[in-house]
Nucleic acid binder design. Structure first.
Length: 301
RNA sequence: GGUACCAUAGCUCAGUCGGUAGAGCAACGGACUGAAAAUCCGUGUGUCCCCGGUUCGAUUCCUGGUGGUACCA
């Protein structure tokens, strides 16, 4: 056992059992949890995001849960800053901190860092969005080709969000977006022990289905109903909320909405797994295999 | 019990005037540095219910099963 600081990072697809494992590990290592979940920040969205219960939150201290409003603007870079600041504080009292979460980009922001870019300008985004809606992808392609020809060569020219981001940054800074990307990981003053947890696909899917049914039983429809007035906010572009909005609009039945939530959650889980699979050296465990997981972590301390 | 219709992908179904088949959804695979539970891209995965018959060749036509649906009893 050394005196090096360690960040134990637990990633895995949605509904795999990260919360329960995180609590066990936090208790085992006598530490606290940085949550890296881009939807559990929002205090208005608890049922649909499977936020840890009050009882669970008592068993281990969690940070970055219910600390934002769904109308707040927040992003991975801001999370990188906030999480590092929090960890600095926590490392004063302990050498091990846990980070648990399935938000791929947010985890990446803390582990590897993301490049410094200017804050977004909402007015500019709205203006570009409007033109995109009126003129289509060609508008974005043309704009990007002029502002950042290098990025134009690399970016997916069918993905509006990607192009929009590059255009925004280029316009705000007056420099091509791609010139600001360093493609290097930032140095961290702690060691990172990262591991993935997963289950067999049928097992994972059945947990997803059960969890969605439980959300409905717990009152998801009412939760979503109460958020009707802020449905346009980015936080609510989320599986479980969009589908219920459709139901509340009367455009689909409740049972279809439930089916769609299940399907979209399965797809989300797959996207997470695809992202995590890029991490070639990362070991994978079954979330109930706690002893094996603890042994692995011990061996890395 | 009788009559009619149906049986093709995980599901709902199309189709082949006889040359081993294709849509939607689901599923599967992938990309991704400030919207990331977002955004975007790619891929048919098949004893054409079973046993025979006709045929160079049957998922397709015919006999007989089996299962289902509807109607009549």
């Amino acid at each position: 056992m050394s005196f090096i600081r360690h960040l134990i990072v637990i990633v895995g697809p949605t509904a795999v059992g990260k919360t329960a494992l995180g609590i066990k590990l936090a208790r085992h290592f006598c530490t606290e949890i940085i949550s890296a979940d881009s939807r559990q920040f929002y205090r208005e969205m608890q049922i649909g995001t499977a936020t840890p219960s009050a009882g669970e939150l008592l068993q281990a201290k969690h940070y970055f849960i219910q600390n934002k409003s769904a109308t707040d603007y927040y992003n991975a870079s801001m999370f990188e800053f906030d999480a590092l600041e929090m960890m600095d504080k926590l490392f004063k009292n302990q050498n091990i901190i846990l980070m648990v979460g399935g938000s791929t980009l947010y985890v990446d922001a803390v582990c590897n860092g993301i490049d410094d870019l200017p804050a977004i300008d909402m007015e500019l985004r709205e203006k570009l969005m409007k033109q995109y809606r009126e003129e289509g992808l060609e508008f974005l392609r043309h704009k990007l080709k002029v502002l950042d020809p290098d990025h134009y060569q690399k970016v997916d020219l069918r993905n509006p969000n990607r192009m929009l981001k590059a255009i925004e940054v280029s316009l705000i800074t007056g420099k091509p977006y791609s010139s600001m990307l360093t493609a290097t990981s930032k140095e961290r003053n702690f060691n990172i022990i990262k591991l993935g947890i997963n289950r067999e696909r049928p097992e994972l899917f059945s947990r997803i289905n059960q969890r969605v049914d439980q959300m409905i039983a717990d009152g998801l429809v009412d939760e979503v109903k109460s958020l009707m007035s802020i449905r346009e906010s980015n936080a609510l572009k989320t599986v479980g909320y969009r589908e219920i909005f459709e139901y509340l609009d009367g455009s689909i039945s409740l049972s279809l909405a439930i089916e769609k939530i299940k399907t979209n959650t399965r797809r989300y889980a797959k996207r997470q797994l695809t992202w995590f699979s890029r991490d070639k050296g990362m070991p994978w465990f079954h979330p109930e295999n706690t002893d094996q997981i603890v042994d692995y972590i011990q061996s890395k301390l």
